[in-house]
């Protein structure tokens, strides 16, 4: 480590210990009145172990105190940001939805979240309704391995038509310029506007989509695109059976005219 300023006046230091490299520049300048003052700047190369322990102990405690304070101060805002992002995405993947209700998984069943219990814990599912209170579908979460890291997505699922009606990527570290086309590629994302998962959704070549269950591929992002399709298949099959029936569950939709399909209980 070179000294930042040229030291023309200082004598060469003994090279026996690297502890002697540090000196007090302020003292050489004559600005430090406490130079050599034993209590503040020990001349002995070995201060007592107690002093070392105390220094690190105090530094660590102050650091911990500051971190806890900042953590507590920022935690509500961070949680709010996370929920806002999730709710924005929930409306995005359910075209036409104007409001939603939160459902949570409880003892293997998906039930309406009671807002009086505060923020929901655990996995949440959003049920979206249009302006007339008609149910549109569910925004269900999904995650799985992508090319770089775990992908987290939100899937719009219409249980009446049994179609995926939207898909949003919540969390991705896919390669910029290539893998991140799963967000920007128009053909790929359009495939999720009405996608059948029966028997399963399959990835086909770019622009080759001809069936309801086919997804247009992305050249240069095959792995990322396949990952999304896999997550969609897995999440829909995992959630489909457990989702509540919106036409009977929702008091707002009692008078619904929307036809119920042949039920998959």
């Amino acid at each position: 480590m070179a000294d930042p300023l040229p030291q023309t006046s200082s004598p060469p230091k003994p090279a026996s210990s690297n502890l002697t490299v540090i000196d007090d520049d302020g003292a050489r300048d004559g600005t430090d009145l406490c130079h050599g003052c034993d209590t503040k700047l020990p001349q002995a190369p070995q201060p007592s172990p107690l002093r070392l322990i105390l220094t690190l102990g105090i530094a660590g405690s102050l650091s911990g105190l500051l971190l806890v304070t900042v953590f507590l101060a920022t935690a509500p805002a961070i949680e709010r940001n996370r929920i806002e992002a999730l709710e924005r995405a929930a409306l995005d993947v359910l075209p036409g939805a104007e409001r939603f209700e939160v459902f949570v998984e409880q003892d293997g069943r998906v039930v309406r979240h009671d807002p009086s219990l505060g923020s929901p814990s655990g996995t949440t599912v959003y049920a979206g309704f249009d302006g007339d209170g008609e149910p549109i579908g569910f925004a269900i979460p999904g995650s799985g391995p992508g090319f770089q890291d775990t992908l987290e997505i939100l899937i719009g699922w219409d249980p009446f038509r049994r179609r995926v009606i939207g898909m949003a990527v919540l969390e991705t570290r896919e390669t910029p310029g290539l893998g991140d086309k799963i967000i920007t590629d128009p053909d790929f994302t359009a495939s999720f506007e009405s996608l059948s998962v029966e028997p399963t959704a399959v990835l086909v070549g770019p622009g080759a989509r001809s069936e309801e269950n086919e997804v247009d591929g992305i050249s240069g992002a095959t792995i990322s695109a396949q990952a999304i399709v896999n997550i969609v298949n897995d999440s829909v099959s995992a959630w489909d059976q457990r989702l509540p029936d919106l036409t009977t569950e929702s008091e707002q939709s009692k008078d619904t005219t929307r036809e119920r399909p042949e039920q998959a209980q």
Binding site: L19, K40, P42, P47, R51, L52, L56
Partner: peptide
């Protein structure tokens, strides 16, 4: 800098 012993300075820097 006057109260941090030289022996633990790097550790203290890292904590800060």
């Amino acid at each position: 800098r006057k109260v941090i012993p030289k022996q633990v300075r790097i550790t203290t820097f890292i904590i800060i």
